[in-house]
Nucleic acid binder design. Structure first.
Length: 480
DNA sequence: TTTTGAGTTGTTCGA
DNA sequence: GTCGAACAACTCAAA
């Protein structure tokens, strides 16, 4: 019999629709599933606290699922190449399979590893589990990558649709003897401080949780998605982002589940909703496309003239933004939701991002870094695209004059103030009229609601209309 | 090569 | 209260 196959799990923590796993089964030899913990190989972006919390639970679930089909997950700390060579020596493995990643550090590392292992005579198989379309297969007519979303997505939709997802293996062939595994506790994944108090009740990491979330979304919120996705006070979005990031669910599964629902006549409303939702999956594709072709965007603006933008250094204001104490209820509610649950509603992400980069004129890096540490769905491609877009220096960036007004956004998308009341409880007793602008409320109203401005709730860090004008003039400095 | 139309998510002002 | 126009100039994609 030929030597065993290693299946190297990375951001593909699932058994279904997992091409690397399938390839290893097809090979016919014993299969040894492994996970390698090497945060120092992630460059400037080692997993943040919220992601580590998620990863810990997801790995546990993966191990349990593997045990149900006669296998298990072998975990190792330390440099990936060294671990792979060590595992090969211990098990006599002759082939290694993995699914591709697209972050610049990971691409480089994987290439190096592949070269070294091939020299050792190991068979390597790398597959696509994370994207509907490979970034290196999509290009404009002239061969260069797209930089605008709409033509990019049109091009994707005109292609052969992604293959249907495959079911997971019913059984995995075991090796005669299992190599030793580090215990998950030894990786010290979850942060010492349990900052994610509410995360446990909000999320169900792992493949089963991911499929349940998808199912729930398809049967519930999808139909109203085009409008309800903008209202942060109830669950109008899919909340699939962390599952997709860790690969507990594949975009192919989402694509086919959305398009291929049985027993429902596809009315016009449904078609519009499905299209709108798949478009968001398209943005995820686009973010990976941009990151793959412009690998320095996590640190450098895509539009080079932004390199000279006069960003401000104001650590106290940054801290206030992080803790949700800016004096703008919509911003503060979002930042507190993030700290409590490891997630923030998309509409609110745009509001808080605009506030940081336009009202405070703090560098988008600071926002990107904070999101990286606190989001359970932190994803280098999405995070980079989102922050550069907000700052106006990225792909398809917002026009210079698009500066969100945190009060207007609150009144439009959280008209009853339910979202603010939930996350900024000290304002809960304010009437709707003032909930998004407590700093303008008459003294009597504040007293009646038990709010002392500057004590129970902070006065605004900046005056928005003034900050807006300053942002516009700063932007005009770098144009022309 | 040149030209043309278009580009996720907004705000404000004045009629 | 509602509505349309103005808000830069630039870059991108495709004809």
């Amino acid at each position: 019999m030929s030597g065993a196959s290693l299946v190297w799990f990375r951001q593909d923590l699932r058994l279904q629709d997992n091409p690397a796993l399938e390839a290893s089964v097809l090979r016919g030899a014993p299969v040894i599933p492994i996970y390698l913990w090497a945060p120092e190989e992630e460059g400037r972006w080692p997993l943040g606290a919220a992601s580590r919390w998620w990863l810990r639970l997801s790995l546990e679930k993966l191990d349990r699922s593997l045990r149900r089909i006669g296998s298990r997950l072998i975990v190792r700390r330390g440099a990936s190449l060294a671990s792979l060579l060590q595992l090969r020596a211990e098990t006599g493995a002759e082939a290694i399979f993995w699914n591709r990643r697209y972050e610049p550090m990971a691409v480089q590392r994987d290439q190096d590893i592949e070269r070294s292992l091939r020299q050792e005579g190991v068979t390597i198989g790398s597959h696509n589990a994370a994207l509907l379309f490979e970034p290196f297969e999509i290009s404009k007519r002239d061969g260069t990558p797209f930089k605008v979303f709409t033509p990019f997505w049109r091009n994707c939709l005109a292609r052969r649709p992604p293959a249907p997802p495959s079911p997971g293996p019913a059984k995995l062939p075991q090796p005669g003897r299992w190599p030793p595994s580090d215990r998950l506790e030894e990786l010290r994944l979850p942060p010492a401080v349990n900052w994610a108090r509410d995360s446990q009740s909000t999320w169900r990491p792992g493949e089963a949780g991911a499929r349940a979330a998808l199912e729930k979304f398809l049967q519930g919120a999808l139909l109203d998605y085009p409008t309800s996705r903008d209202h942060p006070d109830f669950i109008g979005t899919s909340r699939l982002s962390p599952h997709l990031h860790f690969g507990e669910l594949s975009p192919r599964q989402v694509w086919h589940a959305v398009g291929g629902r049985l027993g429902r006549p596809a009315g016009a409303g449904e078609a519009i909703a499905e299209e709108a939702f798949l478009r968001e999956i398209g943005w995820r594709e686009f973010a990976h496309h941009i990151l793959f072709h412009f690998p320095n965007t996590p640190e450098k603006p895509l539009r080079v003239k932004f390199a000279s933008f006069p960003w401000m250094r104001r650590p106290t204001d940054l801290k206030a933004w992080q803790c949700g104490r800016t004096g703008y209820p919509m911003v503060d509610a979002g930042m507190r939701e993030l700290l409590a649950t490891g997630w923030m509603h998309n509409r609110v992400r745009m509001v808080v991002a605009s506030f940081l980069v336009k009202d405070l004129r703090i560098h988008w890096w600071e926002g990107a870094r904070w999101f990286w540490d606190t989001l359970v769905d932190a994803d280098l491609a999405n995070n980079t695209l989102g922050w550069q877009w907000s700052a106006g220096c990225g792909a398809d960036a917002a026009p210079y004059f698009r500066i969100f007004n945190p009060v207007t956004q609150g009144e439009r998308f959280d008209p009853q103030g339910a979202y603010v009341r939930r996350w900024v409880p000290e304002l809960a007793r304010l009437p709707d009229k003032w909930i998004h602008r407590p700093f303008e409320a008459p003294a009597s109203v504040l007293t009646a609601a038990g709010v002392r401005m500057g004590k129970d709730y902070p006065s605004p860090l900046v005056d928005h209309s003034r900050a807006r004008i300053l942002a516009l003039s700063a932007l005009s400095e770098i144009s022309g």
